[in-house]
Design a protein around this nucleic acid. Structure first.
Lengths: 224, 224
DNA sequence: GTCTATAATTAGATAGAC
DNA sequence: GTCTATCTAATTATAGAC
């Protein structure tokens, strides 16, 4: 990016003669810091657009420290995605115990909305990776997406038979739902510019969740 | 990307001694070729991840030719986005003449679905840009998004009052709709890997469109 | 065991050849 | 008017210092 002003590169001036010596941090701490910084960086710029130098600078570390604590940029990316999906699992804890499939799916939608609002970078990373074939895409699809997809598809099929679910094909449902759930948060910067208000206000998050429950499961309220 | 094999860079071997002289093409033709190549490249890799060298190689041109025909990478991106939105305008021609607001919105949904299936790169580019603030994001929001957003919001408000539309807030509606419409096509490579079938088969496109019409406008069928 | 210096490669843009 | 040779900066990874 020659001769073009790059605000991202100015997060920290690496070449400054006054640059201080870094404090030495232990393995777990710095790994955790790198993962947090990488989440934001990969979410905002995609895998290829993200810079390990910028990620390192965000936590006041040198760029090659990433290659020490993670084998490669690719490995950092996978560790970041694993971490985000483990947070998602935490957020979904207990939903599997709900017996009524309609209520289970409704609660899934609510939790997905809240998680997307709290961690938009997971959906940002996923939408970027799923846009073109790559080894990363195959890995994340088989590792993290397929089990969730199959499980939701099975419940959706049942809810369709019972007339509870909206008339959306079981193959497309997963993407229709994730798109409707996450885009307001994935695109939050645009939403704020456009509407002058934030989609992540707690009341709006809950309103969004209930709106989607009523829209995707129109037979749920009638049934009660 | 040192020492890492990069398949994208091997689209064409620029340094090969056997590299042939390029044919000289006229201004309009080569601009059009660049726009088409840039659409795919920006869609797959985002603005920062896209390489002007790779875009040039796709149409058998040298990288600096892009700086000649467009002032900069940034200008190429804006020209690409302008072109895609002009295609969208073409696809939407005549919808504004439909008098009944319910039918007008239903037809809008159908056209959006077909367009997203045919040109997934527009939504790919948009979702990437709207993820973080930038001059590009502000430009595309004010130039292309705001007028569409305001217009749809007005119709949606009316349909909500009439009880035709699903209970989704008018501020979030635009993103919920675009997410539900486009994600199956934006993420088409993942869908194919996951399901073994393509979401862009004509029957599935129409089924997706009618499913969304029924889901977002549940009062439309009842009214007839 | 952890971090810094540096190498190899690729980036976009300018200047000058045709 | 159009394209090619070249320049400077920014990329990730390795090798060696502490």
């Amino acid at each position: 990016m020659a001769a073009v002003s790059n605000t991202r590169a100015e997060v920290r001036d690496e070449t400054s003669p006054t640059a201080k010596k870094r404090v030495r941090r232990n393995r777990g701490d710095i790994r955790s810091l790198f993962l947090k910084a990488a989440t934001a960086e990969f979410g905002q710029h995609g895998f290829e657009g993200a810079s390990t130098r910028t990620i390192a600078a965000r936590v006041d570390a040198h760029q090659p420290q990433i290659n020490y604590h993670f084998a490669s940029k690719d490995d950092l990316w996978r560790a970041t995605v694993d971490h985000l999906f483990s947070l998602l699992d935490d957020a979904m804890a207990g939903v599997g115990d709900i017996e009524d499939p309609g209520e289970a799916f409704a609660e899934t939608i609510r939790r997905l909305v809240r998680f997307a609002a709290a961690h938009p970078d997971l959906n940002r990373i996923m939408v970027q990776e799923a846009s073109s074939p790559s080894a990363r895409m195959e890995w994340v699809t088989e590792t993290h997406i397929r089990p969730r997809f199959e499980q939701r598809r099975e419940i959706w099929r049942q809810l369709r038979r019972e007339g509870v679910a909206a008339p959306i094909d079981e193959m497309a449902m997963h993407y229709v739902l994730i798109g409707a759930v996450s885009l307001p948060y994935v695109n939050a910067p645009e939403v704020e510019l456009l509407t002058g208000s934030s989609p992540t206000d707690p009341e709006r998050i809950e309103a969004h969740a209930e709106g989607l429950v009523a829209t995707f499961l129109p037979g749920l309220a009638e049934r009660d």
